[in-house]
Design a protein around this nucleic acid. Structure first.
Lengths: 149, 149
DNA sequence: TGTGGGGCTTCCCATCGTGGGAAGGTCAAG
DNA sequence: CTTGACCTTCCCACGATGGGAAGCCCCACA
């Protein structure tokens, strides 16, 4: 019964920033929120629930596009669970692929570091390796670091 | 003694796209290339070497910012290998942190999927979990997918 | 010598998810 | 009524990359 809340309260309650809530609405991931007469957005329990759903999905690494699909499935009470499972497993495979890539990098770099004396002398197999002529091949770029915070 | 080459040739020789070569120059990662009288950029052996260095570093997941540091160390013949090693190990730790995050996501999602019948029935623990009220906590955002290609 | 096609230049735009901040309206407590 | 916290929209930025347009330049071939 507690009426609807404004965007700041919704943000605190769901862990989705006000900025992102507006963004999700703008791109159509969420339906336009209700408004007060003066234009403030209002969120009811159901809206908060959807926001938490989105947030949790992001935490599990789903893209916004994926989440649109998940939300649709969530709201379709007659969909087969197979659909959801397929989406989830596809995402797991995606995660595992990225993990394997990062692991390959980490292994290579760790073994290079292992062969580096790490003292005051200038010789360093790490730089030597970087400087060596490696076969240029079409690159699938790898995000160096996910933008922090 | 084969003279310097144009950007397209350099791109093919190093695996760094012409677009990116210009970008690296623009942001100051690489010094401005020489030019023909008509304005074409020219790259000599040393430049190609540096480009390969950058490329290899990107392949190992270093950010452009990191690479600036690596390049500086590479060109400083008197630096201590300890400096390089520290940078490398820091990056390895970074990679391992990201791997752990992705693994946590993959594990959670895989176990949810494991409990989902994946048939024509609508009940699905995956959606149930997503929809459950999870404690909202400040999020360190996680890139859903590294941009492909 | 002329022409065509491919390479080069710069400049702008898009991506994806997020935050920062300005300029201005609104609301409630003092 | 004032103050300060909130809300609104709008624009800009990030990082690394690709796409594409408009306009030169250069070489090979007829």
């Amino acid at each position: 019964m507690s009426g609807a809340v404004t965007i700041g309260v919704a943000a605190k309650a769901t862990g989705v920033s006000a900025k992102m809530i507006r963004y999700y609405e703008e791109i159509g991931l969420l339906p336009p929120a209700g408004r007060t007469t003066s234009g403030y957005r209002l969120y009811g329990e159901e809206d908060l629930h959807a926001l938490r759903f989105v947030r949790r999905s992001r935490d599990l690494g789903f893209s916004v596009e994926d989440i649109a699909g998940l939300l649709a499935l969530w709201q379709d009470r007659s969909r087969a669970s197979a659909q959801v499972k397929a989406l989830a497993l596809h995402h797991v495979a995606d995660l595992r692929r990225r993990i394997a890539e990062l692991e390959a990098m980490a292994r290579t770099l760790a073994s290079l570091a292992d062969h580096c004396s790490g003292d005051a002398r200038p010789d360093c197999p790490i730089l030597d390796d970087l400087a060596a002529a490696h076969a240029p091949a079409p690159r699938r770029p790898v995000r160096a670091r996910p933008p922090s915070r």
